[in-house]
Design a protein around this nucleic acid. Sequence first.
DNA 1: AACACCGCCAACCGCAAATGA
DNA 2: TTCATTTGCGGTTGGCGGTGT
Length: 334
Amino acid sequence: MGRAPCCDKANVKKGPWSPEEDVKLKDYIDKYGTGGNWIALPQKIGLKRCGKSCRLRWLNYLRPNIKHGGFSEEEDSIILSLYISIGSRWSIIAAQLPGRTDNDIKNYWNTKLKKKLLGRQKQMNRQDSITNSNENNISNNNNNKSPQNLSNSALERLQLHMQLQNLQSPFSSFYNNPILWPKLHPLLQSTTHDQNPKLASQETFHPSGVNVNHQNNHIKLAEINNGSSPLYSENIEQSLNPAHEFQPNFGFSQDLRLDNHHNMDLMNRGDSKELFQVGNEFELTTGSSWWSEEVELERKTTSTSSWGSASVLDQTTEGMVMLQDYAQMSYHSV
DNA sequence: AACACCGCCAACCGCAAATGA
DNA sequence: TTCATTTGCGGTTGGCGGTGT
């Protein structure tokens, strides 16, 4: 039978919004708010639009303080780290980037950021294959993975997850070294420390920009939320599991554990080298601050042929530790 | 100049979750 | 508890503009 349409499609206008429609919608919401019912809204205003369409237009375009385009390197870093951690949960990622919408970030990832990574990886793979053939071809099967495979959304994220998880080593410098963490939005960097020194000792900075209160296991996001939308705080708060003893994670450990177990059979082999390349390519491509240049220098001087899990500790660079810590942060759940 | 191709992005669609009666 | 309705989300599409041939 199919589901009932959300609106009368015959009498509803589709396609791009005209400036007049924008003005009508914006004026009305500015004056009266949404009234808690998007479906009824267009009728009230006299717009021949579906309620969903109005909502989307408002959230993605008309809402105050929306930023379009011009993603900074810091934002790139946050998007990448969160994508690795939680995958394509754009609304959650958007909650970490004030002024950005999930749609915007999704578009940006699909059209630009992913290509940055994959483009560099392509180059690196080509270089590697030349090197390998020159070295008499002990072929590294991992390099046979094509960027196309990586770009396959689900697989791509799985690969990143599993590759990260397979880097085995204890927590170390990344977590203890704030310099290595992604730079945050200035608002995100302000904490409750100033206001409550007692709490300060119980809180831990999240590299994702979220502060975790050990006592309450509760994220403090008041500073993030500029009041124009509840968008910025709700999702993160929901995502934390208060029952967990604090472990470094992005606040999404439960889901990730599910994801991880679910896909363990499929992706039980990781390739730290490839991931390391991806990470460094990101730095190379974007100049991102948290894939440090030292990492790249060291990578160049380190043999890439022995990145087995057993040797990771011996060959650990700051970057490897960083990546590994990201993996731990992503998966640790008690 | 004309056409084809490609990238970008706003908007749509369908589904699942949340909400409320 | 159940069911209908609304909201929120992520994947996908389609139009437009830029670029290449």
